[in-house]
Design a binder for these strands. Sequence first.
DNA 1: ACTTTTGGATTACAGATGTAAACTCTAAAT
DNA 2: ATTTAGAGTTTACATCTGTAATCCAAAAGT
Lengths: 148, 148
Amino acid sequence: MATTELTATISDAEWRVMRIVWTLKQTDSRTIIDLLEQQHDWKAPTIKTLIGRLVKKGALATQKQGRQFIYTPQISEQAAMDAALMNELNQMCAMHRGTALVHTIDQLELSRADVQELITHLQAKLATAPEEVDCDCLPDGCEGSCAN
Amino acid sequence: MATTELTATISDAEWRVMRIVWTLKQTDSRTIIDLLEQQHDWKAPTIKTLIGRLVKKGALATQKQGRQFIYTPQISEQAAMDAALMNELNQMCAMHRGTALVHTIDQLELSRADVQELITHLQAKLATAPEEVDCDCLPDGCEGSCAN
DNA sequence: ACTTTTGGATTACAGATGTAAACTCTAAAT
DNA sequence: ATTTAGAGTTTACATCTGTAATCCAAAAGT
């Protein structure tokens, strides 16, 4: 049977809905709609559609409570974030990922604790870090030709 | 007039094409097709479509050369990567971005130089890093309610 | 000059996504 | 018991994406 792939892709708009539910741990559609109508110019039906799609995708679970439903996340926020980020990075040239991270982290606001943890993890990586990471954009590798 | 938004979104499949052109700096469709047919199960027409869309989007420039075209990137690879990454992160809860980065970097293969540079930049951030970065998933902020 | 390649353009088509109106119940109010 | 408001479902529809077959004209080969 279809194990309802918990790996279903969540679209940008759907991601907004998930963030609300993740944060509240569990809620009803009324709350989701109220909150999202404040953040965006979405009409209630739009949000209902998004909720419906997330349920169908298995990202949200429903639990009947009177005339309505209580929605709960079926996937962990952190796991979803990690996966989305890895996904994005894996789509890019391996050789330039590091620089992209540098540029991004530079612009990002991170807590002292997070910065500290990142430093710790990175220092641990230093030991085994390869001298070079090759470009993987071409079928065979782009050794010579890739001069940047 | 339409300034041909250089910010046009590049889809996943299109991204593959861009990587080839970015790496080769400039090429003809024959080369792109040959290379991509090796990496994926795409038929030549599929790749042609992708190239066409990228040209229309302004991501690739064409330069007639005999019966064919020479394609050149109109956007910098690094800029596109940085933007895509920032974009992805900005879509997520500000409070958990740091952890997502930690998890991702842990799994990523980075060159010694990149790791080193990341450490340097992070150490510089330590000085001004805020004690906490609040969750920004709810309209007002999710202070109390956000206990994770 | 004629035929065969083949690069690029046109057309196709299903599924995903953003956005939302319309509809149908049924629990809640009276 | 009736009415009604609101939760969830169905339908809608344009655009984007993945994937590809066709078509056309010019170049290349013979």
